[in-house]
Design a protein around this nucleic acid. Structure first.
Lengths: 198, 198, 198, 198
DNA sequence: TCGTAAGCGAGACGGTACGTCCGGTCTTTTC
DNA sequence: GAAAAGACCGGACGTACCGTCTCGCTTACGA
């Protein structure tokens, strides 16, 4: 069942070195000053070794992110029972994280990467936005069970709204007004709370 | 008031040639295969002439967009009196426009440009997202006057939600489900319609 | 007496494959587009197998020549008793052979190889020029015995003159004048014929 | 009449720097460790500047030789009236020069260059062997006038013999026997001296 | 009307990075 | 222990652009 490979096996050490170099250089200089040549040099690895395993700069960055070399702090979406408070707290966390220069730059870098390299972009995008989106959906689902969200609410669309507005404000480099989150949550929730009227 | 300039005045013909070349090459090969060298060559213009008037590739692209050399079809947000129908129609238009390969590529290109060049990016972003955002806000305001939207509704946040979810789906390269728009509008509206309950 | 070797014996088949690949590629692309990597690939042989047995590109080429994979037609220097006619005939043969594109290229390749790799170059040079040089000396010696060449003639120097002028005209890519050979032989002979004067 | 050149003119300083770097590196490491990359680096010149003006490594070397950056000591062929003595002296000079490691390496380098790059090779070869060959022919011609060489002697073929045997001994890396020159000259001369016999 | 001050196309300059090829070496499994 | 396979580091290849710098040539304005 296992694929039998002949010849010298891939060096795990080189793989790590490349990914670590990518992380360091990305932090230091940003995505578009990142170069394969520079990565190889810092990793003390032949350029060919990079080209052998990754198709593009975006692909290297994607692996660096996906394999956890570039820590994108996982933001926990608590479930205290109070959906509004939980969402507000989480969005404040997100706002804070994305406004930090390091992360905002990285996110824009990933946006550029996504723009440039289709297949890798897709993989990166999915892995990058997927888990958080899933967490949001699950929290909303929990809200359904506790009666804070009505049963037929469109959770997926709501999650996309949240992801979208977050992306938008990062890309726009907007200094968010302090109350942006607190203004946002009610609007989001009003789409999914149990109907109050007749 | 007007700055008096000595010496030979700037050639309008060269300016047009550069912007047209940019448009053609951007359409043909995409943003990151676009090069100043290539633009100058196709415009039959000295490289220095480009560098004299524009600070970066993103700046040239921005001018090409802003001066209408790259036609971003202006999408009209009608005011028929039925806010829900108007928004749905407009979002369908947007969805169609942004899914066309040409426009989606351009949008992602602009996203990359925004990521890369801060001051130009801001100008580009504002001019690019501003008018549509303004149109949405005005239509919502008209809804306030007609009583379809409550007076204290947070129009700006709602407009950002719309812009965000649109950007998000373009970047994600998602083929939108046919009913995405029709699922989206009720959620958006529920945040701003007059309160039905007590 | 014979060296007893342990382990798997050297593969004669690989040796032949390498030498044949060398011959083919040398014919096709010339000496300096020849690469060890290319030889190994065409011979379906590991690179290491080449490196195990040959020290350099020149060494492989040398073996290919010496083992007859690259046919350098052996030119026969007849002994009809007429030294002048024999030498003329032989030099005409040599001229014809060396002027053919295939052989001229090969000879220049060998010259380059000799320049590059000292020990192999020497071996190659000796084996390559030696036999013909020896044949010339023997024919001249036979001339001594028949009285056409005087006893104290300097046969070695004469042979070097012949080899030199041949190499020179190949390297110079000169199209030889038709009568070059017939002009050359009298001069060569005049240095070694029996003295006519007092 | 004069070619009107537009744009920035070629930098003479860069040209000199390249040729000087070539000379230095060639002396230091020999022809096949010479690299365009290395030349450009040492000359503090962009690689493209080298590629813009020279087609190959051989071409750079050729220009370096032809423009006198690589001094090939011009060997003077005196005319004392004694042809035999003059030739012997000159050949001793040549032997000494070509046996010095620096020169022998360079000559073999040029041979390799000639082998590799046809048009440049031809130019190089002609300029390199031409003047000496011409000097020999003129000295022989002078011998004709003084009666030491007979009028119908084949001076061109004799000059080729001399050049050939010189090239041959350099390529063969032969340590020349001390008396090689003194054995060579009589043979060469016997082909062209006035006939002594009937 | 003439000089001085830009702007212009052209194109060479020193550089950086590209993506590829090859040189030698090393490390597997297979024979 | 040799062989095929194939990854490793290193380094040069030749190309594409970067942003800068001269050139000779307009094209304006002000003295």
């Amino acid at each position: 069942m296992a694929e039998i490979r002949r010849g010298r096996p891939r060096s795990e050490q080189s793989r790590r070195a490349v990914l670590e170099a990518t992380r360091d250089l990305l932090e230091a200089n940003g995505y578009d000053k990142l170069s394969i040549e520079g990565i190889a040099a810092r990793a003390a690895v032949g350029k060919q070794t990079v080209y052998r395993w990754w198709a593009s700069k975006a692909a290297v960055v994607a692996d660096a992110v996906l394999d956890g070399f570039i820590p994108m702090a996982p933001l926990s979406l608590a479930d205290t029972g109070d959906l509004s408070a939980d969402l507000t707290a989480w969005l404040d966390q997100v706002a804070k994280a994305t406004r930090s220069n390091a992360h905002a730059g990285l996110i824009r870098a990933l946006a550029a990467a996504v723009s440039t390299d289709e297949p890798t972009g897709d993989r990166l995008w999915e892995r990058f936005t997927g888990p958080d989106r899933q967490a949001v959906i699950e929290r909303l689902q929990s809200g359904v069970e506790s009666g804070q969200v009505r049963a037929d609410a469109d959770l997926a669309v709501t999650a996309d709204l949240i992801a979208g507005v977050t992306l938008f404000s990062v890309m726009a480099r907007k200094e968010p007004s302090d109350d942006f989150t607190s203004r946002l949550v009610p609007i989001l929730l009003s789409g999914i709370v149990p109907r109050t009227g007749a």
